[in-house]
Amino acid sequence: MTTSFSVKTLFAAALFGMAGLVMAHGNVTPQPVDTGDLPDLGTEPLAENPFREGSSKGDLNAQAVAIGESGYAGNCAGCHGIQAMSGGLTPDLRELSPWDDEYFIGRVMNGTDRGMPSFKSNLGQTAIWAIRTYVESLPAPE
């Protein structure tokens, strides 16, 4: 009976340990994003995505989508899923609506107390908005 109890206890402890690993971001190392010919947007957070069609730099939308796709793959997909299709542990970024721009830039630049790292010292605002533009180009979840 002691052996059975020990195996069950060990198994339960292993499950709890693995759950902790799944819930944590671990060591996230931001990857640089080559923003190509997109303009440098500076460090003061913008309130709206400048690369969205119809915005001030909307003519750069297609270029921002391509750059954002690469930036997303290197910095976001590990936690938020390929093509922003979250597995449920992190927010599905395709569900962010266009009026959430200030919330988005604040979260990405400052991180969260739930484990998302701050990207403001590693990714420029141009790269962050390009990533947002890429996410906006994806089809909404069904």
Rank of each mutant, 00 (worst) to 15 (best):
T3E: 15
T3F: 15
S4P: 04
K8A: 15
T9E: 14
L10T: 14
F11T: 13
A13Y: 08
A13M: 14
A13C: 15
L21N: 10
V22H: 12
A24D: 12
H25K: 10
V28S: 11
T29V: 15
V33G: 04
V33C: 05
D34T: 13
G36V: 02
L38M: 04
L38A: 05
L38H: 03
P39A: 08
D40S: 08
D40M: 02
P45R: 03
L46W: 07
N49V: 09
G54R: 05
S55E: 09
K57F: 10
G58C: 06
G58K: 03
A62C: 09
V65R: 01
A66K: 13
G68L: 07
S70W: 01
A73E: 15
A73K: 14
A73D: 15
A77T: 10
A84D: 02
S86Y: 06
G87C: 05
G88Y: 06
D92E: 06
L93D: 00
S97H: 12
D101W: 04
D101V: 06
R107P: 00
N110A: 10
R114W: 10
S118Q: 08
S118L: 02
F119D: 02
K120M: 13
N122K: 12
L123W: 00
G124H: 08
A127S: 10
A127D: 01
W129E: 03
I131W: 00
I131A: 02
T133R: 00
V135K: 01
L138R: 08
P139L: 09
A140C: 04
A140M: 12
P141K: 13
